[in-house]
Amino acid sequence: MTETTQQTSETRRMLSEFWFYFSENRGAVIGLCVFMALVVIAIFAPLLAPHSPTVQNRDAFLVPPVWQEGGMSSFLLGTDAVGRDILSRLIFGARQSLVIGIVVVTIALFGGIILGLIAGFFGGWVDTVIMRVMDVILAFPSLLLALVMVAILGPGLMNAMIAIAIVLQPHFARLTRAAVMTERNKEYVMAARVAGAGRLRLMFKTILPNCLAPLIVQGTLSFSNAVLDAAALGFLGMGAQPPTPEWGTMLAEAREFILRAWWVVTFPGLAILVTVLAINLVGDGLRDALDPKLKRS
């Protein structure tokens, strides 16, 4: 009983310390607020969107935004070439981007952690084989490898997510391995080993929690990378397929109208930029708050 209370108060102290350092970084707090807003928008998309994201209004093709001449008040950010409301598509697009980020980071994180733990913990030829495979993946330009994988698996959002996760995964494996190798011979691990902890317990309960800080930072960076790469694949026609309201796919559909209707191009890209920027700001803040080396200076 007292042990658990002690543990919770310890966790609370660590969290409050973390928040102290994180909140000192104004950009990170702004990024976090924007990100939270995006999450809310994504969750309540059907309530917030004024129109359906896929319904085509035949009497409203390429209507400009409301503040421009010819704009209509029912289409705040205008409509695209087949008369769909851009604002509604952007709101639903937030769902796609967040799901992409979450799925990709989850797959990459789990895969990378397990491979990194195995490589770092066992060493020897197991380590060599795993790390050489990671080197091979990293030798290809990431977008190119993802593209070719999607070409094999067939275009679509799910395959794009898998491909991006595979491409991002070596970073996690490398980080975990490096962290495990420095932690492996420390006294607390020895103590646990002497006390009779099994291999799995040593790997996941003793060592892993002490390697988490760099993984969290890398996870945020990968989240923004995933959003960017998925949008790029969508733009190249290899990601989410029309009429899915994915931001990159929206840009691809808008390409031929760039010189006639600036709004169909500008807003989806702006949405991608704002999302990625917010996540990167949070990532910078996390790095500063979790990196003990920077904390001291």
């Binding site: 923004s224 960017l228 949008a231 790029a232 733009f235 990159g248 840009l251 390409r255 760039i258 191009v265 500008t266 989806p268 890209g269 991608i272 930029l273 990625v276 920027l277 990167n280």
Partner: peptide, 11 residues
């Protein structure tokens, strides 16, 4: 660093 360059090019 956060720029979707395909959009940046179009802009």
């Amino acid at each position: 660093y956060s720029m979707p360059i395909f959009w940046w090019g179009l802009l």
